[in-house]
Nucleic acid binder design. Structure first.
Lengths: 196, 196
DNA sequence: GTCTATAGATCGATAGAC
DNA sequence: GTCTATCGATCTATAGAC
């Protein structure tokens, strides 16, 4: 197992996420990895396969924070704020944005990659939150009639306008204060709507 | 003024939005328009310029529904539901999705297009809703302390998980009933949170 | 396994006739 | 203005030496 394979994966990730699938060339990736083009083909077979490999690897790596179990012992405000903070931190991450852009851009050519992305990230986040919301509803802490719809709504609020601007590369990076204000506002709105 | 210019614009729109900027070729566009490649270059100069022309034209055309003035006479529930319905109908439109995908995918190469898209659509929608929310707050019908944040939250709720799935091309087209249920749930949640 | 060299195709853009 | 023909560059992928 040579270290060249890892070097190729690393270089391919950088080049694909920076330039996108179409504009990235196997030659550029080979140079960035410090190997010849043929070595890239020996390891990964084709451009499509290499793109698939780096997207899947990146999905697993980046989306891991939202998969970890939550401390359901605390009060709903603390739990929701924690979930929200981790989620916003994730989608604000420059690598996440680049990955998301690449997956969206090539979703027509690689539908199975788009689905893998969705399942390994957003779908799990919604499922986890919906389960938690059902739990607090049964416990009587909040009133959540439709946990899945409410969970989707919550993450929608958090993505909101910010995610859109970041995807489009518009304006300055939001400060930590802005992000906190946005998270707090979303949590407050959500709690106010589901107060028992 | 020949009809060929319109034919080129039309063909370019279809080809660019279907294949994306990189995968679309000037030759394909010329064939689709029924003219020679040189005629395309005579009219639009370069691939970049042609892409910019069709994106700007499409932004103006597609995003017009959310620019029209709202009937602020009715009760907040009706007004918000109307705004929400028009917004969701817009972002669900296949052409809007294709345009959005193309703009996001090329936002690094064409930042001014991304900004034009944002300004002519999402920014206006937020501004209009924020103005309305400030109005109903002053009138006492709702309690909206931060109109701009609340407006962003509202549109975020509406985009939500649905927009994400559609962008990624995942799953079946949602039915009108699902969309209505989502809109109603978002409006109810928003109103419950801002009840005076 | 890894390299150099290149095949084969396609692309954006242009030249020149009409 | 519109066409055909083509240039020069670049791309994916492969052949063959070591």
């Amino acid at each position: 197992m040579s270290g060249k394979r890892a070097a190729i994966l690393d270089a391919a990730t950088r080049v694909f996420l920076e330039y996108g699938y179409g504009a990235a060339s196997m030659g550029t990736i080979a140079v960035a990895a410090g190997v010849s083009k043929q070595t890239v083909y020996s390891h990964f077979g084709s451009k499509d396969a290499l793109f698939g490999a780096i997207v899947r690897e990146r999905c697993d790596r980046l989306l891991q924070p939202i998969r970890i179990a939550d401390d359901h012992g605390k009060n709903p405000t603390a739990v929701l704020t924690g979930i929200a903070s981790r989620f916003v931190t994730l989608i604000m991450n420059p690598e996440s944005r680049a990955l998301f852009r690449a997956v969206v851009a090539e979703s027509a050519r690689f539908p199975e990659l788009a689905e893998a992305f969705y399942r390994s990230g957003p779908a799990l986040a919604v499922d986890n939150l919906a389960a938690y919301l059902g739990e607090v509803d049964a416990r009587g802490a909040l009133k959540v009639a439709k946990p899945v719809l409410s969970a989707r709504l919550f993450f929608g609020m958090l993505r909101g306008d910010l995610h859109l601007r970041l995807l489009l590369g518009i304006g300055p990076e939001p400060s930590a204060r802005e992000i906190d204000a946005m998270v707090d506002h979303a949590v407050e709105t959500f709690l106010a709507a589901h107060r028992r």
